[in-house]
């Protein structure tokens, strides 16, 4: 087989919350991604394996899994970078219920985006003109830093606070809220800040920075959460919260 050099032993989680790791022998090829491995197993070795993917080029955010204990986007993770002693362990994302094998139930993750008021809130009266946003303004630059999230849930899976406190909104939802706090066209204001405050919100973040460490897009949700902490304090001191 072209490019094939040897075989990898790949342990893959099979089952739901109760299950076990099953070993597969997969040919190792050059420039092979972890998603290639999972696809090979499903197409050649065991068609009952369930997993989720779509674009295969790091845009859609649907193929995240736990690879050798670390949450990663599998379509852009090269096997050569993560395999240890020709071995890989591939499991579902942490902090989310497992539906089957490598597919997790993402509802809690996305419901929290809604709870953090992660949708654009237009003003009650439509603006008379286009909003003119200076690309160099501080607010626009803050929004720029937060806006590239692909919703892969790698940060959510990496976050210890989510593991300890299931109500915690998590890095992605709070990061999204921060991009809207910095959107000058948005009218969500104090209502959104109230939604992201307190025990389930930004004030519970321990600033461990696991989210920033693992984000495949190199975003920094910890910095976004720190911004929310400052914004909520300012709102509280001015009576807006």
């Amino acid at each position: 087989m072209p490019g094939q050099v040897d075989a990898l032993t790949v342990s893959v989680w099979r089952g739901a919350a109760a299950g076990r790791y099953v070993d597969y022998q997969v040919p190792h090829r050059t420039s092979q991604t972890v998603l290639d491995i999972v696809t090979y197993i499903q197409r050649r070795l065991d068609p009952t394996l369930s997993y989720r993917f779509s674009c295969r080029v790091g845009v859609c955010g649907s193929c995240a899994m736990t690879v050798n204990g670390v949450p990663r986007w599998t379509c852009r993770t090269h096997v050569d970078r993560v395999a240890k002693d020709r071995k890989l362990e591939i499991g579902p994302l942490r902090n989310l219920p497992v539906i089957k094998d490598l597919a997790t139930d993402m509802r809690a993750f996305f419901d929290k985006w809604a709870r953090a008021k992660g949708q654009f809130q237009p003003p009650a009266t439509p603006a008379a003109d286009f909003a003119r946003v200076d690309p160099a303004s501080a607010a626009r630059r803050e929004a720029d830093a937060a806006i590239e999230c692909i919703g892969c849930a790698v940060c959510y899976s990496a976050c210890d606070v989510v593991a300890w406190n299931p109500d915690y909104l998590g890095p992605a939802a709070l990061n999204r809220a921060w991009s809207l706090v910095n959107d000058v066209r948005d009218a969500g204001g104090a209502e959104r800040l109230a939604a992201v405050s307190g025990d389930a919100g930004c004030h519970s973040c321990h600033s461990h920075q696991a989210c920033a460490e693992r984000c495949p897009k190199q975003l920094n949700p910890t910095a976004a959460i720190a911004g929310l902490k400052r914004a909520t304090l300012k709102a509280a001191l001015t009576g807006a919260l």
Binding site: L193, A194, S197, G198, H203, K229, L233, A236, L241
Partner: peptide
């Protein structure tokens, strides 16, 4: 506890 109270708790 209100959002405001929790924010003050964090600040304290």
């Amino acid at each position: 506890m209100s959002a405001r109270a929790q924010t003050y708790l964090w600040f304290a």
